Simulated assay, not measured.
Amino acid sequence: MAYQPWQDIEGADPSILIIADHASAFIPDDINLGIEAALYDEHVALDKGIQSLGIKLCQTLDCRGIFAMQSRLIVDLNREENDILGMIPAVSDGYVIPGNTGLKAEERQQRLERFYYPYHQHIAEKIKIQRPKLIISLHSFTPCLRSNMDCYRPWHVGLLYNNDDRATQIAIPLFKKTSLKIGENEPYSGRILNATMNRHAEANNIPYLVLEIRQDTIKNEQEIENWRVLLEDIIKETIKKLA
């Protein structure tokens, strides 16, 4: 099967669309980043656990999903177009990425035309054809940054937003009924970094949830299943209260 830069999951319920910008660490054969193989299993290359969780949620909610199928080190799809350094990082959390160092303007543009623009165009077309009532943006985060080992991130899950917090303010009290530690605009603020949802949710006045799950709580199939059960209930309750 030919490589595709995203994976579509179809479902019978059009009201929910799940998006995962960093679901895979895949690197096409014609791109050499010059990094050790072990780095492809680190948070700088992908959002660990999110592809499996997202697929399970699509199945149990019978909803649509769009999952990016290449590493964020090639192009970080959750960046604004003018964020040149963040989009194709030469250094990520202290790791030097030789294949992204010293790229010419035309080489950067080729990456965008191959990965970034088609991905966002595809999402836009899906939304135009069948507008969801709620978009779920799935991410995971490392509990401790290599570049700042003194900074421990205690939240089990963070809910991010920029200007539109309709769904977030419904979901936060539901999360707080659990024993989890909840972060609002943590481990970073959606007012600073919210590119995919700014473009496809806020610009279309569609409520959304950006969920950042701490990676050491989503390491294996049992933990992924625990999150699936919890998120299924919260997503269903959130969309019901949005109606």
Results as ranks from 00 to 15, higher is better:
Ser189Lys: 04
Gly190Tyr: 05
Pro132Asn: 09
Gln7Arg: 15
Asp165Leu: 06
Lys48Gln: 12
Asp47Glu: 00
Gly102Leu: 14
Gln169Met: 13
Gly94Tyr: 06
Ile74Trp: 02
Ala12Thr: 13
Gly86Tyr: 03
Glu237Tyr: 11
Ile50Asp: 01
Arg199Trp: 15
Ser52Ile: 08
Asp150Glu: 12
Gly49Pro: 08
Asp216Thr: 14
Leu230His: 04
Asn204Met: 11
Ala23Lys: 01
Glu81Leu: 14
Asn185Ile: 08
Trp227Gly: 01
Ile224Leu: 15
Leu145Val: 08
Arg146Trp: 09
Lys48Asn: 13
Gln7Ser: 15
Glu186Asp: 10
Leu77Gln: 02
Gln110Thr: 14
Ala203Gly: 15
Ala203Glu: 15
His200Tyr: 08
Leu231Trp: 00
Gln222Ile: 06
Ile84Val: 14
Gly34Asn: 06
Asp165Gln: 11
Leu209Asp: 00
Glu221Thr: 13
Ala12Met: 13
Cys63Thr: 10
Pro154His: 04
Ile234Arg: 00
Met1Ala: 12
Asp76Ala: 01
Ile55Ser: 12
Gly54His: 01
Asn163Lys: 12
Leu145Lys: 14
Ile50Cys: 05
Leu138Met: 14
Pro98Lys: 00
Tyr117Trp: 15
Lys177Leu: 10
Met69Leu: 11
Arg191Leu: 11
Asp41Met: 05
Met1Val: 12
Trp6Val: 05
Leu211Lys: 00
Ser147Lys: 14
Thr178Val: 07
Pro89Val: 04
Ile66Gln: 01
Arg228Gln: 03
Ser24His: 04
Asn32Ala: 14
His120Ala: 09
Ala203Leu: 14
Gly94His: 08
Arg131Ala: 13
Leu73Tyr: 00
Asp41Pro: 00
Leu138His: 04
